[in-house]
Amino acid sequence: MTNVRRARVDDLPEVVALIAEHAVYEKADPPAKGLAERLGPLLFGEPEPRLIGLVAELREGGPLVGYATCSAEVSTWDGEEYLHMDCLYLRDGHRGLGIGELLMDAVRGEARRLGLGQVQWQTPVWNDGAIRFYGRIGATSKDKRRFFLPVR
């Protein structure tokens, strides 16, 4: 039975491996060296981590097959906080098994825990499987483009 839970410090190497797979899946550059060292304090900082990490394992203590990360953000237009889901990824062969819904349920649970009324995220326009999945769980979308501006 699939288990979804908060990531633990000892999951970090496996989470970083999932992130690298996710980058390949999204046709992106691989994560820069030292990701675990940068990500650890964000996921496990005190008193409350900046980034919430959720992982899916096929059985308790089994290998990780997916992850989701999210953090509270602010909508200027709404004048309210929302939960921004930065990543949701399932390893090849584990999609279409209901694990994505379990991760999304856990993300919603984190939003409720934080008293937030909405979750927002994005996905590549070519990711038809994800778009169908998000529509099936009741999500709606808006067309926008994401920009990146280096500051270093």
Rank of each mutant, 00 (worst) to 15 (best):
S71I: 00
S71H: 07
S71N: 06
S71L: 03
A72N: 08
A72W: 04
A72D: 07
E73Y: 09
E73L: 07
V74C: 11
V74T: 11
V74Q: 12
V74L: 13
S75F: 06
S75A: 08
S75I: 04
T76Y: 12
T76C: 14
T76M: 12
W77I: 12
W77T: 09
D78C: 07
G79L: 04
E80H: 07
E81F: 07
E81N: 04
E81H: 04
E81T: 07
E81D: 05
Y82G: 10
Y82R: 08
Y82E: 08
L83R: 01
L83W: 02
H84Y: 06
H84S: 04
M85Q: 00
M85F: 00
M85C: 00
D86N: 03
D86E: 05
D86C: 03
C87E: 06
L88Y: 00
L88D: 01
Y89A: 06
Y89P: 08
Y89C: 10
R91Q: 11
R91N: 11
R91T: 13
R91K: 11
D92T: 15
D92K: 15
D92Y: 14
D92N: 14
D92P: 13
D92M: 15
G93L: 13
G93S: 15
G93W: 10
G93F: 13
G93T: 15
H94N: 02
G96D: 09
G96A: 04
G96W: 00
G96P: 15
L97K: 15
G98D: 12
G98E: 11
G100L: 13
G100S: 15
G100N: 12
G100E: 12
G100Q: 10
E101H: 15
L102H: 13
L102M: 14
L103W: 07
L103F: 09
L103K: 04
